[in-house]
Amino acid sequence: MELLKGIDVANAINEKLIKESADMGGRVPKLAIIRVGERPDDMSYERGATKKMEKVGFACESFVFPETIENEAFQKEFDTINDNPEIDGILLLRPLPKHLDEEAVVGRISPEKDLDGISPVNLAKVFAGDKTGFAPCTAEAVVEMLDFAGIDVTGKRVTVVGRSLVIGKPVSMLLLKKNATVTICHTKTKDMKEECRRADILVAAAGVAKMITAEYVGKGAVVIDVGINVDNNGKLCGDVDTDGISSLASVATPVPGGVGSVTTSVLAKHLLQAAKENR
């Protein structure tokens, strides 16, 4: 089994971004990261995104608010950031604290600045196959990894485990756009193991640690693990039991070091695209 590592894919995207941004005439794309509270996973992603922007020469500013901020105050702060013409793209770290109206924010984030594809406009474009919108970064990272590995999905049987709007549904639409034959599995799917075994390409996005065992994987399958979990030993792991499928899968992505490594590069790619439109 070959391990498809995210660092190689990310480096290829980064190199291309650096070359493309040289044509911006000195204009530096700027990202705004909005974080409420001190959730460790939010802070980790913020650090990773900031580091990636620095690596490709883009600007990044974090707007951090206390978890106790009142809803009206937060909405006003968000509008100020959203309306700032010097900011090309926005990354809103979610979920927001329950007392904040997240739906209101998602509903009025500028689609042109919505780099992680959370707005209704961008999600609708993904489902319509319209490439002018931004897809969720993690979903697009899956496609980037398959493209980098030279895996043509045309006519292939792809099974996606998970149906969230963050990964499951949008990655299904992106792969359908590339002419894959897509099946979405979820908690109500009958005989999920058989559905997964039939797949040429299996995308695990269920959010359950090591759920995908050898019983779910067909001989020669490509397995893309999107899960980020912590196992019983407190170690980071994905949705796939990578060791257990090694004799079956032809290609698999590791966790950590797989899809997650590509996500911030896709974010930077979206930022450059937004900056070009904002010139």
Rank of each mutant, 00 (worst) to 15 (best):
D191L: 01
S246E: 15
G258W: 11
V106A: 08
A22E: 13
Y216G: 10
P136W: 04
V259N: 00
S21R: 11
V106E: 09
A73W: 11
K51Q: 13
S172R: 07
L3Y: 08
I184V: 13
F65R: 14
A209R: 10
V36M: 10
A10Q: 11
M211T: 02
D23I: 00
D23K: 11
F127Q: 06
T181G: 00
D101G: 10
E103G: 10
F127H: 05
V143E: 02
V251W: 03
D114T: 02
N233Y: 01
L236E: 01
G26W: 05
E72R: 13
A274S: 14
D225H: 04
K76V: 14
L272S: 11
C60N: 03
G260K: 00
K210Y: 06
V36Y: 07
L100N: 07
E277S: 14
L267V: 06
V161A: 05
A128E: 02
I224E: 07
F65A: 13
P120H: 01
V255G: 10
S265C: 06
E54G: 14
V208K: 15
K219V: 13
H186N: 09
E102V: 14
D147Q: 12
P170G: 08
D243N: 15
V142T: 09
H270K: 01
I13C: 04
S250M: 09
H99K: 13
L176W: 06
K52W: 01
T181Q: 00
E102F: 12
A204S: 15
F127T: 04
V105F: 10
P254E: 13
L175V: 03
L236Q: 03
I87N: 08
S110I: 06
L100T: 10
M1S: 12
N122V: 00
A204F: 07
A141W: 12
A124G: 11
R27F: 13
A274W: 04
E215I: 04
S261I: 03
T264S: 11
T253C: 05
A22W: 00
V171H: 03
P29N: 09
K131P: 14
S21A: 12
D241V: 07
M173I: 05
E61K: 15
V226C: 15
K269V: 02
A274K: 07
P95E: 12
R279M: 07
L165R: 00
R108M: 12
D116P: 12
